[in-house]
Amino acid sequence: MKISELFDRGEFVVTAEVGPPKGFHLEGVIEEAKTYLSGITAVNVTDNQSSVMRMGSLATCKLLKDAGLTPIYQLTCRDRNRIALESDLLSAAAFGIENILCLTGDHTKLGDHPGAKPVFDLDSVSLLHTVRLLESGKDLGGNDLVGEPPKFAAGAVVSPCSDSVDAQLAKMERKVMAGADYFQTQAVFEPDKFIEFMEKAKQFGKPVQLGVIIPKGAAMARYMNNNVAGVHVPDDMLAELAADKERAKAGITGVEIAARVIKACRPYCQGVHIMALGWEKHIPALLEQAGI
């Protein structure tokens, strides 16, 4: 099932994400996904997230699919040149993976192999262009594909609370021009900024899923404020998280905050994308509190 079909039907699409382990045993990830994510439309599988080496996204997608979940295959341009990316897209099609998310990828210097070569032969925009080209039966070298071309719902990301939101909107427009079907956003804690962003983004006519993180505590929120681009947890939320450490630690405060953000933004977007960062167990409570 392509998630673009759900957007077309006007459904409010809920996705979450899982990160493959630094190893090859996936039982834990699959068990967790089945327990907490079964009510969710599709599950993103990150691609060596934050430039930290892990089991591959494509193989994880295949195993999740075999377990009955709908995976969204995240592809970054950091580790592979255009030949490898095109080849992996064909491999994904062979596995029946229909949903992908095209990203540029974090720089290698931010991860656990800082000396690795950053590839970036393509970027998010040219990768989307490549997907649409493959779907037309051609590759980037101008050669014909043999047999049926692949077909994907191809998503992209955007950062609505970035301090250079106009440059982000310009990039979003390039992604739309290159063929993006839908967007997932960086985590939002400032509904006002998101709503303002959506006022400008709606001209592109593409579905946008609100990015949501359940904050685990004041320290985590402060860390994101200092280190994570495009994410800002406002002072009142920080105070809320700091007020009762036990409550925050148990996930109660974080779920309340995330549910509030979803409720405030829901009329302006076409779905939510939850980045639980290990707190998958809180997703059912979050969806319930948010009224989804």
Partner: peptide, 14 residues
């Protein structure tokens, strides 16, 4: 730092 030719990535802060 990524030598991107199609616009800004999501990694710019302030």
């Amino acid at each position: 730092s990524k030598s991107l030719v199609n616009g800004q990535c999501g990694g710019s802060k302030n």
